[in-house]
């Protein structure tokens, strides 16, 4: 077990290093965006002098490299800065939005992960049957369709025609949990469709790959029934790739939902990011991106640790 703890510590250290590189990339990529906040705040009609004065007031006249270090220093101290537009703290603006995004991702994940794994297992068990083929065709369609299209299709069916759910998921702060679930149902289903398809196909492939192994033949020759061959003999050896795709999907559900949030007008972090980019509100963009990067890194570490914990060969060396 101490091996795993030291591994986690090592990976966290590496993760910090990655974060540093990512912070450089984010900061200077944002710098490269055409236009700046002073221009955006004053509008196209502003004269050169007023823009210059505004730049000075916002601290934009200092060289970028110097501003990077100030920014990094503040960030390390937990100060995410103040929004250039609303002049409120970035942390405050982000926090509520993140909570909403996590809620949506969690909602989708609770449905998608068990559904995907059991569908994948069933597809592998009934390989090449009608069931397997229809699950495959459906999931392939779901994967290939862009998520905003899936979102609109759901809106047309469930909001416009059937009128079961609201087409827009504008959640008030402090809304009841029941109302939250009700209002975020359609965006969550959109995510479920996309993520399930991915995870299900990977689960199926991982199990079928394992099914070719001699120990599976051995299990069959011991008279083990087919479902038990899959659940007891194949699945434990397929966990590593499944865990990997599950964590990747989780990361996608938290950070990659920009389009879904825009379609449903869901007050999540993705929408905040899009708004902030168009308003050139750099501190918010940078903070969001860094947090996205941290989520990806943490989930990747979780995937590696999960793979090790499910593999006795890595867990117990000779």
């Amino acid at each position: 077990m101490t091996d795993i703890v030291s591994l986690i510590i090592k990976r966290l250290g590496l993760g910090l290093l990655t974060m540093l590189v990512v912070s450089i990339l984010i900061f200077f990529a944002v710098e490269l965006l055409p236009g700046d906040s002073a221009q955006a705040a004053l509008g196209q009609m502003a004269t050169g002098e007023t823009v210059a004065a505004m730049r000075k007031q916002m601290g934009l006249d200092v060289p970028a490299i110097v501003r990077y270090f100030y920014w990094l220093q503040d960030f390390v101290h937990g100060d995410f800065g103040t929004s250039m537009i609303s002049h409120t703290s970035v942390a405050g603006a982000i926090l509520g939005r993140f909570a909403n995004s996590f809620f949506l991702a969690g909602f989708a994940a609770i449905i998608a992960i068990p559904l995907a794994v059991s569908l994948g297992v069933a597809a592998a068990l009934f390989r090449d049957t009608i069931f397997d083929k229809s699950v495959n065709v459906t999931s392939l369609t779901a994967v290939s369709a862009p998520e905003f299209l899936l979102g609109y299709i759901l809106v047309v069916i469930f909001a416009v025609k059937l009128r079961w759910f609201p087409p827009i998921s504008n959640i008030r702060d402090g809304a009841e949990i029941g109302e939250r679930i009700f209002r975020s149902f359609l965006p969550a289903m959109t995510l479920v469709l996309v993520a399930t398809a991915h995870m299900m196909r990977m689960t199926r492939a991982a199990i079928i790959n394992v099914l070719a192994g001699p120990y599976i033949e051995m299990a069959r020759l011991k008279g083990v029934p087919p479902w038990r061959v899959i659940v007891r003999h194949a699945l434990p050896n397929a966990w590593a790739p499944i865990i990997n795709v599950v964590t990747l999907s989780l990361a996608y559900m938290i950070t990659g939902v920009v389009l879904v949030e825009v379609v449903f007008d869901y007050p999540g972090i993705g929408q905040l990011l899009v708004d902030s980019v168009s308003k050139r509100d750099f501190p918010i963009v940078q903070a969001c991106c860094l947090i996205f990067a941290a989520i990806f890194i943490l989930l990747n570490i979780a995937a590696d640790v999960g793979s090790i914990l499910t593999n006795p060969r890595l867990k117990r060396p000779k």
Binding site: P214, M218, P236
Partner: peptide, 10 residues
Amino acid sequence: SAAASFNPAH
């Protein structure tokens, strides 16, 4: 091959 025919997970 007993090495390949025993399930590594159990």
